[in-house]
Design a protein around this nucleic acid. Structure first.
Lengths: 181, 181
DNA sequence: AAAGTTTGAGACATGGATGTCTCATTCGGA
DNA sequence: TCCGAATGAGACATCCATGTCTCAAACTTT
């Protein structure tokens, strides 16, 4: 029974990241509330989708903060980011799939802000000689986010154990991104 | 002007992989045909979506064939698979995003068939000592497909040059999947 | 216990995409 | 040139999710 807005949004993610066209009935049921209450919390479907996106972007921003991606060497910074991001992988999965959101300016701006920070992390790592330079920082950012999203989907569908998530992501991605010594 | 079914499906992918809820008008326009003709080719929206999914799975199956993933050492087999898959990355992106398809039994079966082959490739590679065993074959399969999908999205949105796609995918993924010598 | 608030269930209207139809036009083959 | 087939444009009807409303029940607060 989720009464506050964020709990509802979390429940909504669970449904929407799998089926972006899920009916509001289904989302309300997943949140343990009625469709009427859902409408009281969010003016309509668009608003709901938008707020889920905003939540995801806020969470990812918070993950970048707690990981302090601008500090320390890029390698361990990325490891910290993995740990900070994995708990919100489902939200990232939603963001990756819902390209529809990109009509909204506010969403686009916030999205841009996060990507810039991620991109800067990889660029810094390349300049430090930590990350490979044959792969563009843009592609590294893209691929990282894709894998986070993949983690989210895999966990939701029960194909990946949550305990293994951070390790699987870090090992696979860092293996490909780190410069060989 | 795409008159045959497959051309229409290809055009549909271009629209649907970005916006899964695109109207039939938009899809028809993207294919250069009228909505009436679109309906003559495909009974309805569901049928269209389904056939796009089927096309994607068929293409991926063909890629597995042409790459001959069951032959040779797993490393070069995977490199062949990258080259064979990248041209159809957009279709894979659609498959990754449209989890809605998973209601259909025929789709599920075909999907299962491809995943089994991909999974077997990684398992074989692990047994040959080529791929890392700390990462499960299931996760490697998942991550590979996620990155292919990411390639597709990135190319469609102009964030990745098609020429760089195969290299970027192979280097990043193999870097993380291959056992260090 | 009583008043006020919130919620759930359902009915209802609405809008918009979908599906079906017709008909004029165009294209292709004989 | 002529005929048949295919296409496009548009006009409908239909369906269904959405949005709005009401009212009773449950819960909270005093």
């Amino acid at each position: 029974m989720a009464t506050d807005r964020d709990s509802v949004l979390e429940a909504a993610v669970g449904v929407l990241s799998r089926r972006p066209t899920a009916h509001l009935d289904e989302i309300a049921r997943a949140a343990g509330i009625s469709r009427a209450t859902l409408h009281r919390l969010f003016p309509g479907r668009d608003a709901l989708i938008r707020e889920v996106g905003m939540l995801g972007l806020r969470r990812f921003g918070t993950a970048l903060d707690t990981a302090a991606v601008e500090e320390g060497d890029a390698h361990t910074a990325l490891r910290r980011l993995v740990d900070a991001t994995v708990p919100d992988a489902a939200l990232c999965a939603f963001l990756a799939g819902e390209n529809q959101l990109y009509d909204d300016d506010e969403i686009n701006d916030l999205w841009e802000q996060q990507i810039v920070r991620l991109h800067a992390l990889f660029l810094r790592g390349q300049q430090e000689g930590v990350f490979r330079v044959e792969l563009s920082a843009a592609w590294l950012s893209e691929a990282f986010f894709d894998l986070v999203a993949g983690i989210g989907w895999a966990i939701q569908d029960g194909r990946l154990a949550p305990r293994d998530a951070a390790f699987s992501l870090a090992e696979l991605f860092l293996g490909g991104a780190l410069r060989r010594p």
